[in-house]
Simulated scan of single mutants.
Amino acid sequence: MITLTVNGVEHRVAADPDTPLLYVLRNELGLMGARFGCGLGLCGACFVHVDGHPVPSCDTPIWSVEGKAVTTVEGITPHPVQQAFLDEQAAQCGYCVTGIIMSAAALLERDPHPGESEVVAALDRHLCRCGAQQRMVRAVVRAGEDNG
């Protein structure tokens, strides 16, 4: 049994310690926000926060997050960046959006008012095939501007 703290709630999970965190989140805990994309931690669709840092959950074994705080997109709702994505119509198909929102939320925690170059750097690991990247960058900058 592995004990995980996800979105502030402690869960005991009967799974192999090498099981990817993404599988436990989706299949055991019913949290569907993080999505399977590449399975290699390269596309960003599965990003969650571990102790406040965005990490790919598809290649993060659950043993490595025991005793740490895991936060999914469900755990940050509502968040200013989510509203900014709606206001800027930044999501198209939506597949990559939850991972991007998690990286954007971590950026805004570190830098409440990032500029465009900081946002682009923070979202660099995310792949979006819809062509909505510029709207996403505008949305994150807007969330920072709305941050007071």
Rank of each mutant, 00 (worst) to 15 (best):
E145N: 00
M1W: 09
L42E: 10
H49S: 05
G94Y: 09
N147V: 08
C130N: 00
I62W: 00
N147T: 15
H113R: 14
C46V: 03
L40D: 12
Y23G: 03
L40K: 13
I2N: 13
L86K: 14
V50Y: 04
Q82G: 06
H11M: 09
L4I: 12
D146G: 01
H113Y: 10
A121M: 08
M102P: 14
R142C: 00
V65N: 12
H79L: 02
E28M: 10
E109K: 15
D18K: 09
C128Y: 10
R12E: 15
V137F: 07
C43F: 11
G144L: 02
A91L: 08
P54H: 13
M1F: 10
L31F: 01
G75D: 02
V141G: 03
N7I: 11
E145G: 05
V120E: 04
A15V: 15
D124A: 15
G94T: 07
D124H: 12
R125H: 13
H53Y: 09
T71R: 06
V24C: 00
A15C: 05
P112I: 10
M136T: 04
D87Y: 01
L86P: 14
V81D: 04
E88D: 05
Q92M: 06
E109A: 14
P20G: 08
L42P: 01
C46W: 03
A34G: 15
V70C: 03
V141L: 03
A122R: 04
G67C: 09
W63R: 15
A15K: 09
F36Y: 10
R142Q: 00
N147W: 11
L31R: 01
